Each structure stands twice: as structure tokens, then as C-alpha cells.
Simulated scan of single mutants.
Amino acid sequence: MADIFHGWFADGAQPFPAVMRLEEYEGPILDDLRAGRTVRIEDTRDPALARPDLAAIAEVGVTALLSVPLIVGGTLVVNLSVHQHAARRWTEGEVALVQEVAERLWADLVRARAEAALRALNASLEERVEERTRRLADLNAELGALITRTARNLEAPVGYLSRFLGPGRPADLLAELPPHGPSALEDELARLRGVVQDLRQLARLEDQGLNTELLPLGELFAEVQAGAGSRAEWLIQPLPIVRGDRGLLKQALAVLLTFTLSDTRGARSVDVSSEEIDGEVWVTVQDDGLGLSGEEAATLFDLAVRTEQAVPLLPGSGLVQVRRILARHGGWAWAEARLNGGRVVLAFPRDESVSELEALFRQEGR
């Protein structure tokens, strides 16, 4: 099939069909065009040139034909044709003119397509930069909220302790405490211990250097699965290779699977798959356990919520590590709200060198 994507017709000229079946025009004309040769026909109705391909062209109202082909990679891609309903003797100047117009049109088309591809690439890069900026802003906001909450959490126990340690304190201060005072102090100290634990954990993750290498995620998931000791049924679909720190990513997966396979969630099957979206590799971990509400999904990885304990948390509150580790690799992690089952997405940046390596493996596997 050949599509006629543009045409100009003089007044009174017979319109050319929008689609042509090439098999109806097989013969010397198509042979010449496919070979990159300009076709010049002065009269398709000339008895001396009686051929099926010329007859087919004559049926659509073409008597004289001048056609310049464009060959790309050895294949006929497009041709620029000039024709009329009366016989015509084409001059060398006319042939040269049509050839020059064809070359200029192709150059303009290539440039237009390159510009369109560049615009699309720039738009894609801008979207990715905006998304990375948003993720970084989320992390910064999370740290800011953590600092604010930590300061507020310190106020109550510091107030209590200052009464014990401050100058001029009464000797019988303990007797003056209300009945709920010791219990409240213990609660505040317990909250502080949780804050300190989270801060130490965060500090370790931020300070630890990244030893990046090429990691087949399928193997990494299999290692973590083997160590989980769960009776759940697993389906680990083919996963890509990523560039990352084996120890940190294995730690992130172990924490995630601790949450996924917790007794409270009751998951009996786990499905791990991947897909490429917007320059990233999204690895999805789905299970058939307890679903997540919108609030739980939105705050599952938030360190601030983990510290504040404002939202009831499911087992696996160490999930804050997962997002921090993915962020250090240039990725992200989030959960999706579902009535039944859990769905967590781990986003990794796509590495072109890794893509080439995977393509090589696929070729060797054939």
C-alpha cells in the first residue's frame, strides 16, 4: 500500500487516489523507483509502451509522469511525482528541478522531524526534572517536618526534667507531681527514644557511601525471598538490571518484604513485575493481603508520620528506609490505595548502558 499524503491539482485535473495498491503497479516503474532511479514517462498511452503498470497509471488519469524516489537504508520510503493528463516531453531542466525540489523537501522533512523529536525530548526531560524536583522537595519537607516535630516532642520531657534539675527545685517535687505525671513522662521518653532511633537510622542511611554495581533485580529479590522464610506463593517475573548498591538495595527489599509478609497483612501470594515508564524502571510488588486505605498508602513511607504516630501504622514501620534508599539511587517508592491487597512501586532511573547490556543478553539468549 502507498499513501498519498499531499497533492496539488491544477484546475480541471482528475484527483489522484489517496491510497494505491502497489501490486497493481508492479513492473519497470516500481523497479526503477526502488533502485533509486528517476522515472520519466512521456505518454502512458503510447502503444509502443503497452505495459500493465502503465495501463494502471493511465486508469487514474495520468498520461505524463515524472517521479523522483527517496531511498533510505536501501528501501523506497517516498517519492515526489509530477504528472499531467496530457502527453509531455520532459526536459532535462524540468527533471533537475523536480529532483532538487525532492531533495529540499526531504531535508525540510528531516529537519522538522528532528525538531519535533527534540521538542518531545525536552518536554520529557522537563517532566522528569519536575518529578525529581518534587520528590526532592518532598524529602526536604519531610526533614523539615521531622525537625519541627522533634523540637515539639522535646518540650514536654525537657519541661519535666528541668523542674528536677533546675536551681531552687523543692525537695518534695515528686510528691507534687499529679497522679498521671510519671506515666506521662514515661510516654514522652518512649516517644523520644523512637525519635532518636529514627534519626540515627536516617543518619546512617545518609552518611553511608554508595558502592554501585550492575545488579540483576531478579536475583536480588530471590535472595531476599529465600531469607524471608514465608509460606506465601511467589511469582517473580523477569526483572531488569539496575545500577545500585547491593547492600542498601537488599536492605530496602528485606524491609519491604517484612511489611508485605507480616502476619497482620496475611498475604498468601506475592507478584513482582516491572515496566518502563517515562525513563524509569518501575518494579511493582503486589500481594493479596490486607488492603491499604488512602491515608495509609499516602503516609506509608513518611518519616514524619512514623515519628508523630498520628496515623495508625501497619507492621513494618521501618518502611521509611525504603524510600530513603531509593531516593539515594535517584529513584522513589510509593504505595497505592487498594481495597484488597497491597501494591508498592519501586522506581529506578533507567541507565542507557544497562539497556545496552540487557539487549546483548537477549541476543545471546536467542
Score class of each variant (00 low, 15 high):
residue 123 A to W: 00
residue 331 G to W: 09
residue 61 G to W: 03
residue 358 E to H: 06
residue 228 A to S: 15
residue 99 Q to I: 03
residue 336 E to M: 04
residue 303 L to M: 13
residue 339 L to Q: 15
residue 355 S to C: 05
residue 92 E to G: 10
residue 79 N to W: 15
residue 293 S to K: 06
residue 226 A to D: 13
residue 47 P to W: 01
residue 13 A to W: 04
residue 83 H to I: 00
residue 61 G to D: 03
residue 193 R to I: 15
residue 81 S to P: 09
residue 11 D to L: 04
residue 124 S to A: 15
residue 334 W to F: 14
residue 46 D to Y: 06
residue 147 I to T: 12
residue 71 I to P: 03
residue 58 A to K: 04
residue 141 A to H: 11
residue 313 L to R: 15
residue 34 R to F: 05
residue 289 G to M: 08
residue 325 I to T: 09
residue 184 A to D: 12
residue 342 G to C: 04
residue 30 L to H: 08
residue 65 L to G: 02
residue 337 A to G: 07
residue 75 T to H: 13
residue 13 A to G: 06
residue 213 E to M: 04
residue 107 A to W: 00
residue 177 L to M: 13
residue 167 P to R: 04
residue 216 P to Y: 02
residue 179 P to Q: 08
residue 108 D to M: 09
residue 109 L to W: 14
residue 223 E to F: 04
residue 307 T to R: 08
residue 53 D to I: 08
residue 287 D to R: 00
residue 192 L to H: 08
residue 283 V to Y: 04
residue 57 I to C: 09
residue 250 K to L: 11
residue 223 E to S: 07
residue 183 S to K: 09
residue 210 L to I: 11
residue 209 G to S: 11
residue 225 Q to V: 15
residue 114 A to L: 13
residue 93 G to L: 09
residue 68 V to E: 00
residue 290 L to H: 10
residue 115 E to S: 02
residue 153 N to Y: 05
residue 304 A to E: 02
residue 11 D to G: 15
residue 185 L to P: 08
residue 96 A to L: 05
residue 356 E to H: 10
residue 319 L to E: 04
residue 52 P to M: 08
